[in-house]
Computed example of a mutant assay.
Amino acid sequence: MKKDKQFVSFIDHINNKFTGWDFTYITRSGRMNNDMLSWSYGSKALYLMQNAKSVLDMGTGGGEFLSTLQPFPNAIYATEGYKPNVSIARERLEPLGVNVVPYHEDDKLPFKNDQFDLILNQHESFCAREVRRILSDKGTFFTQQVGGLDCSRINECLGVPLNKEFSKWDLKTASDEINKNDFNIVFSKEEFPIQRFYDIGALVYYLKAIPWQVPHFNLETHMDGLYKIHQIIQSEGFFDVEQHRFIIKAVTK
């Protein structure tokens, strides 16, 4: 299939390296935008942080989000499982007093029993039993998760099926797991906001940053599907996909 000049230009322009967990390369320029949720994870996390004595931020990425929640309590830790991000997180967070700890298994966290009174988790996998082990009595687990149907239209257009196991990850499944491990859920909600891409280059940058959306993604294999999405953008001015988000605040019994 012959590709037009604009498509080729956007594909050739993809040369920015993604680091940490920062999408400003395509959001600051308005090439990708997201609809608003009816809640703010950041506002709620900031309030919880100011009333905590010992905090863990699970899956901190490059520490971009956690660094905005200052002032910190004396005891604060962050985990990161993606090796390239560990050094980025340490450079950003350790001068602020945060202990950055690499880890590899959700069910074997390198912490003591009852060590934290607040655990934050934004878009990171977790084992509810292990979270409960390291959380003190009356402690709070606060998480915003990416649901299993996230951006499924991308997969449909590229002819790549969603991960069958992950596609079942939703508010009910997560809540059931949390409730089974001595928690009381005090707040929860699930929504499907729109994420909009205005050029095919922004979408490719996004897919390279989140390899789990389309496993083994590469330009050669998925070129025809990408061009079909490019044609949608040419026709409609944008390419919309539904995100899948849910939030849970739970307190230990």
Rank of each mutant, 00 (worst) to 15 (best):
P161H: 01
N163M: 03
E80V: 12
L207R: 01
F126T: 02
G81S: 15
L93M: 00
L109M: 15
G42M: 15
S29C: 06
R129W: 04
E242V: 07
H244K: 06
K2G: 09
R31C: 01
R245L: 03
H123S: 11
Y205G: 00
L96V: 10
I88Q: 11
V101K: 02
H123P: 05
S9K: 14
S175K: 10
Y82F: 14
P161I: 06
V86K: 06
F187K: 08
G139Y: 08
Q50C: 06
V146G: 01
F192W: 07
I134F: 04
K3Y: 15
E105T: 15
K112F: 03
Q6D: 14
D117T: 10
N155M: 00
V131E: 07
F116I: 13
T24S: 15
G62W: 04
K172E: 05
S54M: 14
V100S: 01
W212T: 11
S136P: 03
E191M: 00
W212V: 12
C151P: 02
K228H: 02
V214L: 03
P71K: 12
H13G: 05
M1S: 14
T221Y: 07
V55M: 12
T27K: 03
I178Y: 04
I134T: 02
L66A: 09
V55C: 11
D150F: 10
G30C: 12
